[in-house]
Design a binder for these strands. Structure first.
Lengths: 347, 347
DNA sequence: TTGTATGCGTTATCAC
DNA sequence: GTGATAACGCATACAA
């Protein structure tokens, strides 16, 4: 039994297609009688209008395109679930594209979706895109009048709506917490400079230290190359962090820009015979699930991914439904919150 | 600058729409000259055919609908990434719908996508669907000629392609491992009966014990209600597992059907003063990330989600591209693998 | 009150 | 070699 269409109903009931269409929309033009008959039939056979045809006709799809660098990643799934929630509430569908941190995949994915499949984008750029600084695909889609909302890993040069975490502020608070807990030599474990959020968090780290009057030392900042984020590099990551800590035995506090770095730092500290939190206190910037279950559990700067996703979807949908899609663009900042756990408790 | 269409190109170059269409497909009907001119123009302005129009015309969308119960869940994201990989390779797009374990959301999501947006479904049913045993939405879509591939949480009564993990076998191996490691009283922590995979893993647990000649006791099987899977129920979960272990002090091995149960069991054991793995050895059925980072790290039955997703996508795409979409349906079983870590090491 | 015609963007068939 | 037309499924302005 194939899908029912207006045409088939019309043929079956021996009326015109427009009569069927109008009846199903309960148009006052049509007599109650015919409407009843048609509705009953449509109901019985469970008629549903074809979404694709509607999209073509209305020139809008009521679907949002979401492009993320990775899906096996707690933060991003968290954001997606926020997007999905708001989108569904407002009658939108969500299409997900993965860039897998590749510039090329990001571009092709966007191009594919941009050709009619979606009404607007929500995306977080891939690491490679940040590195190459090639944003033509973003500029072009915006130029074509398709709204784009960037989140988390955003790009200052691009004018569009954005939703970000208060990376700098969150990092500053984390470091302040370490200072308050009595740490004298706080190390930072971060990513290479081209990752936007890494930069911002680094700035927050420096800010807090400067404000405290101690200042910071580049020696205590460990910048890790992208390759350490890849699958199977765990041991190397561990080795390098351990070496860093061995060379800087004065370190008694660590702020890491993500969960993996934080946990690995805890592990490395332990293998150097340091107790956490007694000898070294640790805070990670993350929403991840590992933190809660770690031993000791890890104090984190929570990113509120769901909320971020919700905001992004709201922003995009508002753009789509505003009659005149025009700037000014806005940047919404989602606040972080320090979740204190065992790794910073005062002993 | 709005999106380019055939019509606009035609108007611009003062030729007919069909000439443009044919030129861009490099039809031999058209003179080289015109083709060159048109192609150059299209290239310059980066023409891409509208996907929606193509879908309507071809009556296929080259899009797969994926419905999962949850996205903030490592196993499911893992499956999605496998699906996405294969789909992209074969030129398909992926739309993700979330049921959030709700029957109603599963139904509405499916209905929405089924009306032209996608060519076929890959899905894992929600917990509520399993509970209600109401499968009309699945039966109807299959009846409408739309292929469906079920994965992980499948339904025996439904005839369609399926991809499953060898739950029973995986569980059996895990329990065997515990037996081999010297455990005499192995407990099972599982879900309520209506969850399909929980049942299968329970069967494997019983099998292994029966095969070993020891048999099993219902007293050592802890069945946890769904509510313990919800957010914020961690403490209650911990309490109930701790109580269970306190009442069964002879337990020296635990097999848990998921990661959360396994980790909570480890935690509860510790608070009872039992050392892991010395006093109690633990294995969890999971692909999760927590296991590797837990202290002690958790031995797991790995589910190979990526592979499962790949298989599901391959199966679906084959169905879609086979000329005559006909049974027989197949069920692909993805093997599990025991990943041994500290929680079962012999002391 | 009902039906006809048109268009959304594309391709395929057929006519010129 | 090029163009007009119909069709995919739907909605709607306009006729009847």
């Amino acid at each position: 039994m194939q899908k029912l269409t207006l045409k088939k109903i019309a043929r079956e009931l021996d009326v015109s297609i427009s009569t069927v269409s109008k009846s199903l929309k309960d148009s006052p033009e049509i007599s109650e009688d015919t409407k009843q008959k048609i509705k009953a039939f449509a109901d019985l056979y469970n008629y549903r209008p074809n979404t694709i045809a509607l999209s073509l006709k209305n020139r809008k799809t009521k679907t949002l395109g979401v492009i993320i660098p990775e899906i096996v990643h707690h933060f991003f799934t968290t954001v997606v679930s926020g997007i999905e929630k708001v989108a569904n509430e407002k009658g939108y569908t969500v299409i997900i594209g993965l860039s897998n941190e590749s510039f090329e995949k990001e571009v092709t994915n966007m191009e594919k979706l941009a050709n009619g499949s979606i009404d607007g984008f929500i995306l977080s750029v891939s690491r490679e895109t940040q590195l190459k600084k090639d944003y033509h695909h973003l500029l072009e889609t915006i130029d074509h009048g398709m709204p784009v909302v960037l989140f988390d890993r955003t790009i200052p040069e691009i004018e569009c709506d954005k939703v970000v975490v208060d990376d700098t502020e969150g990092a500053r608070n984390a470091v302040k917490k370490l200072l308050d807990a009595g740490c004298k030599n706080i190390a930072l474990i971060t990513t290479e400079a081209h990752v936007n959020v890494g930069e911002l968090r680094t700035a927050g780290y420096k800010d807090a230290l400067i404000e405290s009057g101690k200042g910071f030392s580049e020696d205590l900042i460990l910048k890790l190359k992208d390759e350490f984020n890849e699958e199977g590099m765990e041991d190397n990551l561990n080795t390098i962090i351990e070496l860093f800590l061995r060379n800087n035995p004065q370190v008694d506090g660590i702020f890491a820009v993500n969960e993996k770095y934080a946990l690995t730092a805890m592990k490395a500290s332990r293998s150097l015979g340091k107790d956490i939190p007694r000898d070294i206190k640790v805070i990670g910037f993350t929403d991840g699930v590992l933190s809660k279950y770690a031993t000791p559990s890890l104090t984190t700067v929570s990113q509120h991914g769901v909320q971020l996703g919700e905001k992004a979807a709201e922003l995009l949908i508002r753009r789509l439904e505003e009659d005149d899609y025009e700037p000014p663009y806005q940047t919404v900042v989602v606040e972080t919150r320090l979740i204190e756990r065992e790794s910073t408790s005062i002993t």
